[in-house]
Simulated assay, not measured.
Amino acid sequence: MSQSERNARVRLVDVARAAGVSKTTVSDALNGAGRLPAATREHVRQVARGLGYRPNATARLLRRGHTRLLGVAAREYVDTPWVYADLAYFSQLTTATTRAALSHGYGVVLLPTSGPEDCWLDMPLDGVFVIDPVAGDPMVGDFLAAGVPVVSDRRALSEAGSGARENGRWVDFDYDGAARQVFDHLEAAGARRIAVVAATATACFHQRSVGTYHDWCAERGREPRIVLLPSPGVQQMLDAVRELLAADVPPDALVTLVEVSPPLLLDTIRRLGRSVPDDLLLVCATEDPAASYTDPPVTTLSFLPGETARAAVDLLVDRIEGRAGDHGRLFSADLRIRSSSAFPGRRPALG
Rank of each mutant, 00 (worst) to 15 (best):
L245S: 13
F303T: 09
N7S: 08
Y53C: 02
L157Y: 11
Q207E: 14
R99I: 12
G105H: 03
L157E: 09
T97G: 04
Y175C: 02
A203F: 00
A218R: 10
P277G: 13
P55Y: 03
A198K: 00
A218P: 06
N31P: 02
D172I: 00
R11N: 09
R225Q: 15
D215Q: 08
S292G: 04
W170G: 01
T256S: 15
D279M: 14
S332V: 05
L315H: 01
L257F: 00
P116L: 06
A324E: 12
S231L: 05
Y213S: 08
P55H: 06
R225T: 15
D279W: 12
T24Q: 15
E259K: 10
L110G: 01
S341C: 14
V128R: 07
C204N: 11
P37I: 08
L335W: 15
L157I: 03
V227F: 00
H104P: 00
Q3P: 04
S158A: 11
A195H: 10
L330D: 11
Q235S: 10
A85I: 04
P297A: 15
P263G: 09
L257S: 01
N31D: 04
L281D: 14
T212P: 00
L254N: 10
E243V: 07
D118M: 04
R242M: 04
A188N: 09
E76D: 12
A156N: 13
Q181N: 14
N7C: 06
Q236L: 03
T212L: 01
G52E: 13
A203R: 00
M123W: 14
P149T: 09
L315I: 01
V13H: 09
V21I: 11
G115Q: 14
S275K: 13
A160M: 06
V140H: 10
R68I: 10
Y89M: 05
G322H: 01
R64F: 04
S152F: 11
V15S: 08
A198C: 02
D314M: 00
R222K: 09
T268R: 07
R274P: 08
R64C: 09
L87V: 00
A218C: 02
P224R: 02
L102N: 03
V171Y: 10
A39I: 10
S2A: 04
G177F: 06
Y77H: 15
E223D: 13
A333S: 12
T25Q: 03
G233N: 15
L87D: 08
L121P: 11
R11C: 04
A145I: 07
H43L: 14
H206E: 06
P138N: 00
V26R: 09
L61Y: 02
V151L: 07
R11L: 13
P251V: 09
